[in-house]
């Protein structure tokens, strides 16, 4: 019986559940003060919802020389985009590598709308991303079902373990090993990517997970990768794998 349980656990376990046990995983939400939690929980108080509303307007707006709106192909986002953000980054067969949701939106613009790509961290890209991500609110993260993603998850994991910068710190040193402690008075979270794009009070705006990761990389005094760099997508992919089955919160609020 005991052996059967162990075998079942081995086959069900996600690729890297080793560092933080699934029962120990906590969203950044759990580390927040009651006021900030209340802000996220109330859709009329969560400033991220302003981006979601803008995204909804953009979704229906015709773009590019093809004169097509997202809605012309995808219809009602509440149905067609449900659960989509929970599966990103996803493998793109044409490119032969994983793409982030931001990149998917811009690929769609190029291929189907014949429109200019939206700049990373631009208002419109964040708004569209937030609108799509909001359709997965409360759903479990389900990244990584595609076996072709495996080598890229591996690369992301290596990057997570890789010491870098003048402080010579790896992601794992804080977010796996010391997450219950504090850094300069603020809780060190587990770095679970459940709520992106997120309205961050420090930024006073919505930002992507890449912005957040670049912030961390700058924090250890390393040179951050450019927005959309394969390394950032792989790191995001690994983080999403690490947070598999946790509930999506986008647009979240973070301090």
């Amino acid at each position: 019986m005991k052996r059967a349980v162990i075998i079942a656990m081995l086959t069900l376990a996600p690729v890297y559940a080793g560092e933080i046990a699934p029962s120990e995983r906590r969203s950044g939400y759990d580390f927040m003060a009651a006021d900030t939690k209340a802000m996220q929980d109330d859709d009329t108080a969560n400033p991220g919802m302003l981006w979601v509303l803008d995204g909804e307007a953009l979704w229906k707006q015709k773009q590019g020389t093809a004169g097509k709106a997202c809605a012309d192909c995808h219809g009602d986002a509440a149905a067609s985009m449900k659960g989509v953000a929970a599966r990103y980054p996803a493998f793109d067969k044409t490119l032969g590598r994983p793409v982030s949701l931001d990149q998917r939106i811009n690929l769609c613009r190029a291929d189907h709308q014949q429109a200019e790509p939206l700049a990373y961290e631009s208002h419109d890209l964040l708004a569209l991303n937030a609108y799509v991500a909001a359709q997965s609110k409360g759903m479990p993260i389900a990244v990584g079902d595609d076996p072709e993603l495996k080598p890229f998850v591996e690369k992301g994991h290596e990057l997570f373990m890789q010491r870098q910068g003048q402080l010579n710190l790896a992601c794992v040193n804080c977010h796996d090993d010391n997450w219950e402690k504090k850094l300069a008075g603020s809780p060190i979270t587990q770095g679970q990517p459940t709520g992106y794009p997120t309205y961050r009070l420090e930024w006073q705006t919505v930002g992507s997970i890449e912005r957040r990761m670049r912030g961390c990389i700058t924090g250890v005094r390393a040179k951050p990768y450019d927005f959309g760099a394969p390394e950032l997508v792989e790191l995001e992919l690994y983080l999403m794998m690490r947070a598999r089955d946790m509930a999506m919160e986008a647009p979240a609020v973070r301090p």
């Binding site: 859709d43 009329t44 919802m49 302003l50 981006w51 509303l53 803008d54 307007a57």
Partner: peptide, 8 residues
């Protein structure tokens, strides 16, 4: 930008 979010 979205104008406003009102709750009444």
């Amino acid at each position: 930008m979205a104008a406003a979010l009102i709750s009444v």
